[in-house]
Amino acid sequence: GEDLPLPPGWSVDWTMRGRKYYIDHNTNTTHWSHPLESGPSSG
């Protein structure tokens, strides 16, 4: 998808195989999909 801006506290990194993933430092979790690309989340 597009390179959307990341929310505060997020960063992007790549695996050893070159796969892009996103790090949420607020909750110390990692995600394969961009936080703003996922569907609407409630709460």
Rank of each mutant, 00 (worst) to 15 (best):
S38H: 14
P8Y: 08
D3C: 06
I23G: 00
W14A: 06
K20L: 08
N28T: 04
W32G: 02
P5M: 09
S41R: 07
D3E: 12
L36K: 06
H31T: 07
D24S: 02
S38K: 13
P7A: 02
W32P: 02
Y22G: 00
N28I: 02
L4K: 10
T30A: 10
S11D: 06
D13M: 13
H34D: 01
L6T: 01
L4P: 15
P35N: 02
P8A: 10
P7G: 01
P7V: 00
K20T: 04
H34T: 03
G43K: 12
G9I: 00
R19S: 08
G1Y: 12
T29Q: 07
H34F: 06
S38A: 14
D24T: 00
T29N: 03
K20P: 11
S38Q: 13
S41H: 12
T15S: 07
K20A: 05
S33R: 14
W32A: 04
G1S: 14
D24P: 00
G1A: 11
Y21Q: 03
H25Y: 06
D24A: 02
W14H: 09
P35A: 02
L36S: 09
G1E: 13
S41W: 09
G43R: 09
L4E: 10
S41K: 09
S11N: 04
L6M: 06
G18H: 04
P7W: 02
N26R: 06
H31L: 04
N26W: 06
P7D: 01
P40K: 11
I23D: 00
L4H: 08
G39P: 13
V12C: 08
R17P: 07
L6K: 05
P35M: 01
P7M: 02
S11R: 05
H31D: 01
S11G: 06
G39H: 12
S33A: 12
P40E: 10
W14G: 03
G39Y: 11
W14K: 08
D13N: 14
E2Y: 10
S41T: 13
H31V: 04
R19T: 14
K20V: 09
K20Y: 03
H25W: 10
P35Q: 02
N26D: 04
R19W: 11
S38F: 11
Y21E: 02
I23V: 09
R17E: 15
Y21F: 10
G39A: 13
K20G: 02
S41D: 12
N26V: 07
R17M: 15
P7N: 00
T30D: 04
G18E: 03
N28K: 08
N28P: 00
D3M: 10
P35E: 03
H25A: 07
S42V: 13
G9H: 04
T29S: 07
R17T: 15
G39N: 12
N28G: 14
N26H: 07
L36E: 06
E37D: 10
P5W: 09
G18C: 05
E37S: 14
P8N: 07
E2L: 10
P5G: 09
M16S: 15
K20R: 08
S33F: 14
L36W: 09
E37L: 14
L36M: 10
S38P: 11
H31G: 01
H31E: 01
I23H: 05
R17Q: 15
D13I: 07
P35I: 02
P7T: 01
N28W: 06
L6F: 02
P40T: 13
Y22S: 00
V12F: 10
H31I: 03
P8G: 05
V12N: 02
G39V: 12
W32S: 05
Y21A: 01
L36P: 05
P7I: 01
G1D: 13
V12S: 06
G9K: 03
P40Q: 12
W32F: 08
P35G: 02
Y22T: 00
D13P: 00
D3W: 09
S41Q: 12
S38W: 11
G1R: 12
H25G: 07
W10P: 00
D24N: 10
N28E: 07
G43V: 12
K20F: 04
S11Y: 04
S33Q: 14
T15D: 15
E37H: 11
L6W: 00
S33I: 14
K20I: 09
M16R: 14
R17N: 15
G39F: 13
D3F: 10
Y21M: 05
L36G: 08
S41E: 11
N26Q: 06
K20Q: 06
S41N: 11
E37V: 14
K20S: 03
G43D: 11
P40A: 12
R17S: 15
S42K: 14
G43M: 12
S11A: 09
P8F: 08
D24Y: 02
I23A: 01
T29P: 00
P35V: 02
G9E: 01
L36I: 07
H31N: 04
V12P: 04
W14R: 09
G18L: 04
P8W: 08
G18F: 04
W10S: 01
H25D: 04
N28H: 11
R17W: 15
I23T: 08
E37W: 12
V12L: 06
M16C: 14
T30V: 15
R19A: 09
W10R: 00
I23C: 00
V12G: 03
G39D: 13
S42Y: 13
P7S: 01
Y21T: 01
N26S: 09
E2S: 12
N28C: 11
G39Q: 14
P8E: 09
D3T: 10
R19P: 04
S41G: 14
M16N: 15
M16F: 13
Y21P: 00
S11K: 05
R17L: 15
V12D: 03
R19L: 12
T29Y: 02
T15Q: 02
V12Y: 09
P40G: 12
T27M: 05
D13F: 09
T30M: 13
L6I: 06
D24R: 01
W14M: 08
D13V: 08
Y22L: 00
W10H: 00
T27Y: 04
D24E: 02
V12W: 08
G1K: 12
Y21N: 00
P5R: 09
I23K: 06
D13T: 07
W32T: 04
W32M: 05
G18A: 02
D24W: 02
L4Y: 09
S33L: 13
N26G: 05
G9P: 00
T15K: 01
H34N: 05
L4I: 10
P8R: 06
Y21G: 00
P8M: 08
E37F: 11
W14I: 09
N26C: 10
D3H: 10
W10L: 00
W32K: 03
H31R: 06
D3K: 09
G18M: 03
S42Q: 13
G43S: 12
V12M: 10
M16Y: 14
S11T: 14
N26A: 07
Y22R: 00
V12K: 05
T30H: 11
E2V: 12
R17Y: 15
P40F: 13
W10F: 02
Y21H: 03
E37Q: 13
H25R: 06
H34S: 05
T15G: 04
P5Q: 08
D13L: 09
T27R: 05
S33H: 15
G9L: 02
N28Q: 09
G1N: 13
G9V: 00
P40H: 12
S33P: 03
D3G: 10
W32Y: 07
P8D: 10
T29F: 03
P8V: 07
R17I: 10
S42T: 13
N28R: 08
S11H: 04
P5A: 10
W14S: 06
P5H: 09
T29H: 04
P5E: 10
G9N: 07
I23N: 02
P40W: 11
G39K: 12
E2P: 12
L4D: 10
L6Q: 02
L4F: 08
Y22E: 00
S38T: 11
K20D: 02
T27H: 05
S33T: 14
M16K: 15
G1I: 13
P35S: 03
G43F: 13
V12A: 07
P35D: 04
S38G: 12
L4W: 10
R17C: 15
E37A: 14
S42N: 13
P8H: 08
G43E: 13
G9W: 06
R17F: 15
G9Y: 05
D3Y: 09
H31Q: 10
H34A: 05
D13A: 15
D13G: 15
D13Y: 14
S41I: 12
P8L: 08
G18K: 04
V12E: 07
T27V: 01
V12T: 07
G43I: 12
E2W: 10
R17D: 15
S11C: 14
R19N: 11
R19C: 15
P35F: 03
P40R: 08
H25F: 06
E2N: 11
T27I: 01
M16T: 15
G39M: 12
N26E: 06
I23S: 03
T27P: 00
D24L: 02
S41L: 13
S42L: 12
R17A: 15
T27D: 05
E37G: 11
